[in-house]
Design a protein around this nucleic acid. Structure first.
Lengths: 342, 342
DNA sequence: CTGAAAGCGCTTACAG
DNA sequence: CTGAAAGCGCTTACAG
């Protein structure tokens, strides 16, 4: 391994000078700089990142904490797209991304602590938020730069990038109401996630404003796999007063719902209308293309990284909470041509 | 930030001793060890990872090189599942994962070089292989530990984890042949990927052995988006002598194929049978559940990491090429009850 | 514009 | 079983 000393010796200068050339210090003569660069190239010199980090107290690395397996499974497409947004922006800014996962609730803080207090990363991105998240409390207590993709009621001032999920679910529900539906159900995600709660709230709000009935049995807070949508259907369809449309928490679950209805002999949209979230690429390729709220997943990741980098560099943020716009993409699953408006 | 010196001072021992306690050196008295640990706990000491890396020449970090955007889009589910397998195994072994992406062919080697020669990671996982991959040549030239998820003709001796894609496609094709199909087409992925070539080869092999015709116009080497399956269909179905079954490179593309056929008024499996690859969770939730080869994506990532860690630790590998078993999951898309065998 | 020196926080022969 | 010392590869006041 060729070090800064080797370059210095061959170039006939001091290690300090080589260091300055590498970092682009302006007080180096162009002549010296040229020569040193030539030697570096010649010897194949590459700065040792660890040594640099040790003295500069900065790692040029951001951390991502992966959610626990259960949630992760669900995230899937969403997750991949988010990571893509994050990594793209980080790379562009010259940062690497470090990923760790926790295996249990128990070691969660230990994992974080290792990264934070061991000076492993300069900042951290949290991919999802639960109620009373201890990770957030820890990071805030240690005054460590981080951003949350999502929202936190308990810590309203932290930097967070989110959709307006209440509004999005409100619009999705209103879209169904505008089609003339009066009995509208909701298939939810993991109840401890803030995003689940927000979407449920928006749904309730829309029903309330439209003075439509809201029944507990029309709401299913299931687990997160696409299968849960499937199981939900036999239940829903056997209700005496079953809903005629559903707001579904996530496209994957919507696929399960669609499949479940088909197997039970019902068809979408004529027997049941659907609106879902995330707008994964497959949504439009379903047997009945699924109406879905596009939440700008890539942009969510991209923007989160931008904000985090600003925080890391101590630059001021114009706003701590950024809302990524959403957009309802209407497809066949929510359009019933033969249904009259009330 | 509390350092090893702080702990040493408070505990009344030398920094060397503290270091030995941290690393679990056996020649430390239990008494000293106990006391030092207590102080560490008390002061909230966490080892500085950078400093340790600098002297130990090891980072406890593995790198993942993300494929370029185009391919990445396609990978999607596959990609997420693979990463999950990798991160799980790495975490279990006490390693972090570093992700970087390349923005262009141009900076590909530079990115790798920075990681490798800057001592940023202990080993590297390549997520896919192209023909004549310069990254592989570079890593081998520098004698740097890495594993390839995939296969390389040019570098047959490197550590690689792969499916037997030739055999898998051979079986998929034979499955269709066994159903009585005689005109079988192939919808491929990016032609420069080894996996595309392998699957195409297996398809050809099966046709050849069964002495079935193989026509160039039955083979579509498209790009990687699910959309390409869609476009493929208008072409295929308008052929005078069109195939009655298709082997499709990937489930996402199969979704596009399915959708395209539906829109053109054809149905699966009665007008066209399908077998695909990857067995993503949504395959069984398609309007017609899609027969797919499960390639053990999670296991691919998991095993790759295990092998890489062995290589990093200089442990011998029983075999450099590991093949993860695949399994054809037969669903409705490839079963034509009313079709007689020839 | 450049160099000598100290130091980042840790590890590890060497000596006892 | 423990400590003093040197060193990992870099940066950065300080001095000139």
């Amino acid at each position: 391994m060729v070090t800064i000393k080797d370059v210095a010796r061959v170039a006939g200068v001091s290690p300090s000078t080589v260091s300055r050339v590498v970092s682009g210090n302006p007080r180096i003569s162009t002549e010296t700089s040229r020569k040193v660069k030539e030697i570096m190239e010649q010897l194949g010199y590459h700065p040792n990142v660890m040594a640099k980090s040790l003295v500069s107290k900065t790692t040029q690395t951001l951390g991502i904490l992966l959610p626990r397996p259960a949630e992760e499974l669900f995230l899937n497409f969403f997750f991949g797209e988010l990571i893509r947004g994050i990594v793209t922006q980080a790379t562009r800014a010259g940062y690497d991304m470090l990923m760790t996962t926790v295996t249990s609730d128990h070691d969660e803080l230990e994992t974080i602590s290792r990264l934070v207090r061991g000076s492993r990363v300069d900042g951290l991105i949290l991919l999802s938020s639960r109620k009373n998240d201890p990770v957030i409390a820890f990071l805030q207590a240690h005054n460590f730069p981080f951003v949350l993709i999502g929202r936190s009621d308990e810590f309203p001032d932290i930097i967070s990038i989110d959709n307006n999920n209440v509004q999005a679910a409100y619009e999705a529900t209103n879209h169904l109401i505008a089609q003339g539906h009066e009995r509208i159900g909701f298939v939810s995600g993991p109840p401890n996630l803030v995003v689940s709660q927000d979407r449920l709230a928006g749904y309730h709000q829309a029903l309330k404003e439209a003075k439509l009935p809201s029944k507990q049995e029309w709401i299913l807070e299931g687990d997160v796999l696409q299968e849960s949508g499937f199981r939900a259907m036999s239940f829903f369809m056997s209700l005496p007063d079953r809903p005629s449309a559903l707001v579904v928490y996530d496209d994957l679950i919507a696929f399960g719902v669609l499949r479940g209805l088909t197997e039970l002999g019902y068809s979408v949209p004529s027997d049941m209308c659907l609106v879902s979230f995330n707008n994964i690429p497959l949504s439009e390729l379903a047997s009945t293309p699924i109406s879905s709220i596009d939440i700008g997943t890539y942009q969510l990741g991209y923007t989160a990284t931008q904000s985090l980098l600003r925080a890391v560099h101590g630059e001021p943020l114009s706003q701590n909470q950024i809302v990524i716009p959403h957009r309802l993409i209407v497809r066949e699953s929510s359009i019933q041509p033969n249904l009259k408006r009330t």
